[in-house]
Design a protein around this nucleic acid. Sequence first.
RNA 1: GGGGGGGUAGCGAAGUGGCUAAACGCGGUUGACUGUAACUCAAUUCUCUCCGAGUUCGGCGGUUCGAAUCCGCCCCCCCCCA
Length: 300
Amino acid sequence: MKKVLVIAGLTASGKTSLSIDWAKKFNGEIINGDSQQVYRGLDIGTAKISKDEMENVPHHLIDILDYSERFHVKAFQELCREKINDITKRGLLPILVGGTGLYLKAALYDYQFEEETDQAEEYLDQSTEDLYQELLRLDPISCEKIHANNRVRIVRALNMAKQGQLKSARIASQKQEALYDVFWCVLAPNKEQIDQRIEQRVDMMFEVGLKKEVEKFFSEKECRKYQSFQAIGYKEWAPYFELNVDLATIKEKIVIHTRQFAKRQKTWFKNQLPSRFVDSLNNEDLDQVYQEVSQWLQGD
RNA sequence: GGGGGGGUAGCGAAGUGGCUAAACGCGGUUGACUGUAACUCAAUUCUCUCCGAGUUCGGCGGUUCGAAUCCGCCCCCCCCCA
């Protein structure tokens, strides 16, 4: 079984620096596992690693899309698996680094997606309640897992049901197994430290020109419907352009959204994966995991 | 000094005699998550010995069967005039 080392974790937990360190020590290459860092030009707001910081360690799946393009799990799954094969073939260790739990899991587990067209527009004029009723007819099992208010998920399941396979049936056909020999590290410092680091990071983003970056891509109203504009650090700027809201307020919003995001990530990793939580701001714990990873690499 | 507006749960803000422990939003907490996932959604958020009880709506006192809501005095904040 191919080995894949995963460095997942909360935003601002220190994934980037650890990944460079380990890539060198374990002779690996890095695959980005972050839904927003795939976009070219969105650098500051996504806290993307810079060329310098890479220290010549090869990075994959960064800057592969224009900010106007759409991206989704299926695409990530395919690209990521290709990279894993490629890196493994060259005798190196693939290190998957990122905070998008679903993407990581979908790439490494036996999740299956199929060719499918997006038909979201079809549902636009229908109420969420109606859509839920329809889904109740077509795929009642999925309804058990999707809340009646969760329009996004309902539309998704409906779309699948109408194009052939039921979402519930597809999930049932999977074994919930990893396709690789995976070591899951989840970097999760304690809350006080994460909150503090988030605040510092956002301050830094403003200092190094986040505003310019956002203006470059999103000052045109049209651009704000792009998926990339969903990213924290970007979407908060709409009131600045439209209502002249001051920068301090924008910044505060970004900090709050980032904190909330970190919490969601933590919940997700805690309950979706058999992962090794790492207090990445604690050197003892880091040494400890380092040993564990080394041992894991030696086994077959 | 005169005139006006205002003080409601962590914050913002409704409520102007009973249906109000008090709408709603934000923030907090917990959780869900298989093609938007940095998304989307849910539960919970005065206190407790928590299926019931106890304290709340600047403070004190009063009217009333009953008050955040009415009356009196006091304290604080904002605006205008002087």
